[in-house]
């Protein structure tokens, strides 16, 4: 709703590339050379060196998907950085949900899933001086019109595969920008509401699941996300907080 009151700023200035190695890297280059307007987007039809975490290859076809980076100046304290993961994943979730009409969920920390199918990739880079996040590059990939994917443990899928429809990428991007702005506003003014919305859409929240911890399987349920973004899991006898890499929820 907020976004209707305020002039949209994300995507007002767009750098488009038919092909580029990494939109995040180009955004970083822009930040090193100039002071781009907040909300500047670096967009590409094909990211040749796009990477997931630890350089995992991202299997995307040319012209079929949304691949972009947004430049933001959040000015929040570094310890609140998880709000950026929340903002990005909720905006991506809403966008996919709007076009598929399916119960799309966020998988901690920042993936977006339908059941056991991964639909997006988010890679956020912050620049921190002292205690504050001065600049953020929010890299977002959404599998949109791609019809087939290689066999991967994450069972990738796309909006097209889930809905059977083909979408105008420009229109889907507009939806994404609107949702990003909505949650960016919340990040600054109502962070607790943003945290609570994240839990409302969190995959596995308050449901009995199996988790992999130090190569052992444990049963438990996610009961909370703490202020640092750690996963809080209730086991039969105790409740524990986990950082990324310490725990893995077992997917089918």
């Amino acid at each position: 709703m907020y976004s209707r009151l305020v002039k949209q700023f994300i995507g007002t200035k767009v750098y488009h590339f038919e092909e580029i190695d990494s939109t995040n890297d180009y955004a970083a280059y822009l930040l090193s050379k100039t002071t781009p307007t907040e909300g500047t987007v670096v967009n590409t039809s094909y990211q040749s060196a796009g990477k997931g975490q630890f350089g995992r290859k991202w299997h995307v076809q040319r012209d079929k998907n949304i691949t972009l980076s947004v430049i933001l100046y959040p000015q929040i304290v570094a310890i609140d950085q998880f709000l950026l993961n929340i903002m990005a994943s909720l905006a991506v979730r809403d966008t996919i949900a709007q076009y598929t009409r399916l119960p799309i969920e966020v998988k901690w920390p920042n993936d977006v899933y339908y059941q056991n199918h991964k639909l997006s990739g988010i890679l956020i880079k912050n620049f921190i001086a002292g205690q504050n996040i001065g600049q953020t590059i929010m890299g977002i990939g959404i599998n949109t019109n791609q019809e087939s994917f290689p066999e991967l443990p994450t069972h990738p899928s796309s909006i097209r595969q889930l809905s059977g429809q083909y979408y105008d990428l420009t229109v889907v991007k507009k939806t994404l920008y609107t949702q990003l702005e909505l949650y960016y506003h919340m990040l600054r003014h109502e962070p607790d509401r943003l945290r609570s919305m994240y839990k409302d859409h969190l995959l596995g929240m308050n449901t009995h699941r199996q988790f992999l911890i130090d190569d052992h399987v444990y049963s438990g349920s996610i009961v909370d996300i703490d202020l640092y973004g750690q996963l809080v899991v209730q086991f039969s006898d105790e409740k524990k907080h986990f950082s990324m890499g310490e725990i893995k929820m077992i997917m089918d």
Partner: peptide, 12 residues
């Protein structure tokens, strides 16, 4: 790096 957020730390 924390929770898939990559933070470049600048010297003050």
């Amino acid at each position: 790096e924390a929770m898939k957020l990559f933070n470049e730390i600048e010297s003050e």
